[in-house]
Design a protein around this nucleic acid. Structure first.
Length: 663
DNA sequence: TCAATCCGTATC
DNA sequence: ATACGGATTGAC
């Protein structure tokens, strides 16, 4: 039995008697209720054995909550492995892996198992060196593992669908994880096109936005073996696909793949562990390459599938950097759109050729924050050091976004200049400026905060499509051009992943543009000497990933090392570090004080606790260890958490392994 | 000497 | 959480 308790020191199995009345039905994987320390708790049957090591008397199961064996042995083992990897508890992982029970779907009869399909032709895979042999391996049920760097212009949903169907043709299941619902939709259609819409579905979609009953219904269909192919967002990485032949992840660098609930597992890591445990093929695919994927290649875990350089050059658009000073431009339209003359020319040409132009702008709303007009130092409030912002009305004065005080008589602390500018031009402002510069051209906005939301697609005609990264509508015949704006705001972040993330976003946009031979052009507003800009111009995500990984090695940051991040009050963190028996290779960094949590609303938000007491400030410690000691590091922190939870320590310490965002 | 209470530990 | 055991304390 695994009991559902949040206490770390109870993260182990407990033996219970199965009363005669449940003997037939309480199968391994069933949900049950048991009396535990005087209270009733939920749990799962992990195993059924004839005798127990426990010296005391065994309590009986109180109730069989459901006869459905929702937790397959393979998923139970996976969940334990994920918990160990992330210094978390099994019951925390099981909450991510198994959806809440609903009575109604259990009444439905199990569907017929989907009949095996034929193997797709998949000749496009053979255009990649090792691509054809990879698919052959999947067809033969061999556990081939690859990092696939997708060729510009590739119809990746169709290729992924072919890989999935190849696994099913071999009589195995397939599991494909994508960052968001839009990408899931694209793969869903590609799979439907490939397999036809027969009476029995060959695949199912598992996403977080399903209603609980539908989610559980689909989950049961997978568990009962009625569908062999599962596609979905990060939680689908745990789907109980029987006899798994292939796991795949699309765009593994997207931060949506990182789970937000403890123990914060990353879908790529879950699938990598799963490929090991279930001895199946794995495919890590994307336009760009994450440093983590690069580690998988360098360590020999995965092969590289990438198009030849010639092939890449033929398929890619023409990419140019433009770091011109816009203010100096003689073209008034260029000044009002804040676009360099090269970009203006490309937009005009493309619109004249009746093709749409993609304009990629950073996320967030309308003029989100302000910076020094001369040196671009972020502008901060003199009273509380919060970021200065400007309300939607362009005439409104700048004010602090934390304390709401107006920023009067601001002067830059670095260079002394007195003028402010928008640090990041929001999508709304960019659209307005483009509208003035190109009167009569239709402007389409796509993004989470846009009025029409995220657009799935756009037509062929001339249009300016303003989109935030990840929300670019799919153009019917490819974009004629793309402008990548405000890149210095992306690259200039003090974030370790800034280079990798910028490349991922740029390639995501550039991949939607026609090839250079069809006139496709990309203009990136950035200094052409910057290594990320260089890698974009050469369309060389592998080269950039290698370079970024070298840098992480020098700095001692993930994925070159294993890193644990502890967040709590200083005393709670120190307690944990005192009782955790860290591997001798481990190095403790910190503490770093964290900025006070600023709740919404103006002044007086410092006291957030219900009792009116100011919450004690949080700090952050980092603990780093070589990757070879990663398991020991996680084990030590888990054991330390257990000691503290057994001692009823009041304050909980948040432990995150290899978090994406190490501020 | 015994009961009341405190503290730490296990929870099957 | 709650239950239990062993140690500790205090009153007779």
């Amino acid at each position: 039995m695994c009991v559902d308790s949040p206490l770390t020191h109870l993260d182990r199995l407990f033996d219970y008697l199965i009363p005669d009345e449940f003997l037939q039905l309480a199968a391994v994987g069933c949900r049950v209720r048991v009396r535990f320390a005087g209270r009733l708790l939920d749990g799962y049957v992990i195993d059924r054995v004839a005798s127990s090591d426990h010296s005391g008397a065994l309590a009986p199961l109180v109730k069989l909550s459901s006869v459905e064996p929702v937790l397959s042995p393979a998923v139970a083992r996976l969940a334990r492995t994920v918990a160990d990897r992330y210094a978390g508890t099994l019951s925390d992982v099981l909450r991510l892996a198994v959806p809440p029970r609903r009575a109604r779907p259990e009444q439905l009869p199990a569907g017929e198992p989907a009949p095996p399909t034929g193997r797709p032709a998949a000749s496009q895979w053979r255009r990649y060196p090792h691509g054809g042999s990879y698919l052959d391996a999947v067809a033969e049920g061999r556990p081939a593992r690859a990092v696939w760097t997708v060729r510009p212009g590739e119809d990746w949903p169709v290729r992924l669908a072919e890989a999935a169907v190849t696994a099913t043709a071999a009589g195995r299941g397939a599991l494909l994880v994508l960052p968001d619902a839009r990408d899931v939709d694209r793969l869903d259609s590609a799979l439907s096109d490939l397999t036809g819409t027969g009476s029995s579905p060959t695949h199912t979609v598992l996403t977080a936005d399903l209603k609980p009953e539908e989610r559980y219904r689909r989950f049961l269909a997978v568990r009962r073996g009625s569908v062999r192919v599962v596609i979905g967002t990060r939680a689908a990485a745990f789907a109980p696909v029987a006899d798994l032949g292939l796991v795949a992840i699309w765009d593994d660098g997207d931060d949506l793949h990182a789970e937000l609930r403890a123990p914060y597992p990353h879908a790529r890591e879950v699938l990598v562990l799963r490929a090991h445990l279930e001895d199946c093929a794995a495919l890590i695919a994307g336009w760009s390459r994450s440093t983590e994927a690069d580690v998988l290649i360098e360590s020999g875990w995965a092969h590289e599938i990438a198009a030849e350089r010639d092939e890449v050059r033929r398929a890619a658009p023409r990419i140019q950097a433009s770091g011109d000073d816009v203010e100096q431009s003689r073209d008034p339209a260029a000044r009002s759109a804040r676009l360099p003359s090269l970009a203006m020319r490309v937009v005009r040409e493309t619109l004249a050729a009746h093709a749409p132009v993609l304009v990629q702008v950073p996320r967030r709303g309308y003029v989100p924050s302000l910076a020094c007009d001369r040196c671009r130092t972020p502008a901060r409030c003199r009273h509380c050091a919060g970021p200065l912002g400007q309300a939607a009305a362009a005439s409104a004065a700048a004010s602090c976004r934390w304390c709401a005080r107006p920023a009067t008589a601001w002067a830059c602390p670095v260079c002394g200049a007195r003028r402010l500018r928008a640090a990041v031009s929001g999508a709304g402002r960019t659209s307005e400026e483009l509208g003035r510069a190109f009167p009569g051209v239709p402007i389409r906005n796509s993004g989470r905060t846009a009025a029409a939301g995220v657009l799935a697609s756009v037509g062929k005609g001339p249009a300016l499509v303003v989109a935030t990264p990840g929300a670019e509508p799919i153009p019917e015949g490819g974009y004629g051009a793309a402008l990548l704006l405000d890149s210095w705001a992306l690259l200039g972040r003090a974030d370790l992943r800034a280079g990798e993330e910028t490349m991922r976003r740029w390639l995501g946009a550039a991949s939607l543009v026609r090839s250079a031979s069809e006139g496709g052009q990309v203009i990136v507003m950035a200094d052409s000497g910057h290594p990320v800009v260089q890698a974009l111009i050469r369309w060389d995500p592998a080269g950039l990933a290698g370079r970024e990984l070298d840098e992480r090695r020098e700095l001692g940051f993930p994925p070159a090392v294993r890193m644990a991040m502890l967040t709590a009050t200083a005393s709670a963190c120190q307690e944990l570090l005192a009782v955790a028996v860290l591997p001798s290779s481990a190095e403790v960094l910190g503490p770093v004080p964290l900025p006070e949590r600023h709740e919404t609303g103006p002044a007086g938000a410092a006291e957030t606790a219900r009792d009116g007491q100011p919450a004690p400030p949080s700090v952050r410690y980092l603990v780093r260890a070589p990757r070879t000691d990663g398991a020991a590091l996680a084990y030590a922190l888990h054991s330390g958490q257990a000691v503290r939870s057994a001692a009823k320590a009041a304050e909980h310490v948040r432990v995150q392994l290899d978090p994406l965002d190490i501020g």
